[in-house]
């Protein structure tokens, strides 16, 4: 690339950045005070942590679609990857990594359980817990204790979409009330916990799947 073109690209990018900053500074102050609104309705949400209340109750619709997007991404990945031969006999190559993985993974699973439970009243929740579960699966794979995944069988498929299906089932059951995902206040806490448990398992499998379906069978 010649010097003039590079200078033009840098100038253009700088100009765009300056325009974006100017646009953000020119935004009017929002008329609705969202934090105050959330704080006012927190007692009716079934949880005491405002972020979880927004994600699973006030804006549950967004979270539902987010999970659907993740599931779609994995379906795309599976549709596109060719069938392959997998070696199903993991054998450790070196002693240190498998030992570390064996020590770490139980703690990771424990942390995931804690994050899931903590989500109701402090930072945590299904996404974080699922990501920690997926990280545990990746650690096991990298330590060569767990083989890469083949085409998903019936059980794995159910696990991958189970959280989404549970979320959809709750949404459908509540549709009788007229609005999507408006939990009755006395049931809200239980329903949110139920959905979060399903989401944790499914998100863990989905995120791990993004890694383990792609991982090539290693030369063990």
């Amino acid at each position: 690339m010649n010097r003039a073109l590079r200078a033009a690209v840098v100038l253009g990018a700088g100009l765009l950045a300056a325009l974006l900053v100017a646009a953000i500074l020119a935004l009017p102050v929002p008329a609705v005070r969202l934090p105050a609104l959330v704080a006012a309705h927190l007692p009716a949400s079934g949880v005491t942590h405002p972020v979880t209340a927004v994600l699973l109750n006030f804006r549950g619709y967004d979270t539902l679609l987010e999970v659907a997007v993740l599931a779609l991404a994995l379906v795309g990945l599976l549709a596109q990857s060719p069938p392959r031969e997998l070696t199903h006999a993991p054998s450790p190559g070196e002693p240190v990594l498998p030992l570390l993985a064996r020590v770490l993974v139980p703690f990771l699973i424990l942390s995931a359980g804690y994050l899931l439970w903590a989500g109701a009243h402090r930072p945590g929740g299904a996404f974080q817990a699922g990501a920690v579960l997926a990280a545990a699966a990746v650690v096991l794979h990298l330590a060569r204790l767990w083989p890469a995944w083949d085409r998903p069988g019936r059980g794995l498929r159910l696990g991958l979409v189970g959280g989404l299906l549970l979320f959809l089932a709750v949404a459908a059951a509540l549709l009788a009330g007229g609005t999507l995902l408006r939990y009755p206040p006395q049931l809200a806490g239980t329903l949110i916990l139920l959905i979060e448990i399903g989401l944790t398992v499914s998100l863990g499998l989905l995120l791990a799947g993004l890694f383990l379906f792609l991982a090539e069978p290693r030369s063990l």
Binding site: V51, L115, P123, G124, G125, F127, Q128, A131, V132, A134, A135, V138, L142, L207, L210, F211, L214, A215, E216
Partner: peptide, 26 residues
Amino acid sequence: APDIALAEAAIGAGLTGALLLDSVGH
């Protein structure tokens, strides 16, 4: 924003990093 910090640690740094390192290895 501890919620975002947790998600960033687990997904942004952890999983994405592992995926990218694996891709470089391939």
